[in-house]
Amino acid sequence: MFCLPYRLAPAEQRTSYLALFAASAGLCNGLAAMTAGAVTSALPREVMVGQNPVFALQLLFVFGFGLRLAAVLYALRVVEHGSHGTRVLLAQLRDDALTKARAAVRPLGRPLRWARALARP
């Protein structure tokens, strides 16, 4: 995640790009934390949702999930030249995991075949 700002910033303007990225990230994060703190301190510790009592902080977490989901969906619009698609990455990860799993169980193959042969009447 931390590589993307470096890749998006042209070399000759890198400093100002990175400064703006860092400043905007910090300000949004900080303001959100202060606002969330103020809102939850104004609420009672437990609130009723339907018939169920839940902690106010649990509601905040659910709201945070909604915002994170929106951010991840928006990330699909972020462009990086020369990068592969997310599907390619996930497919490669799956293939790597399968190859490693097969390699891990391969030494067990021969003893299993012997056991099967012995068990055969």
């Binding site: 998006l8 910033a9 994060n29 969330a36 905040l60 945070g64 999930f65 915002l67 994170r68 951010a71």
Partner: peptide, 27 residues
């Protein structure tokens, strides 16, 4: 960066993502 479409999209993403992290992460 605001005049660069790719950087602008990243800035919007970063604003959303950091607001989301700040909303619940510290608590």
């Amino acid at each position: 960066p605001l005049y660069n479409p790719a950087a602008r999209r990243y800035l919007v993403f970063q604003a959303l993502f950091n607001a989301a992290i700040g909303t619940s992460g510290g608590f």
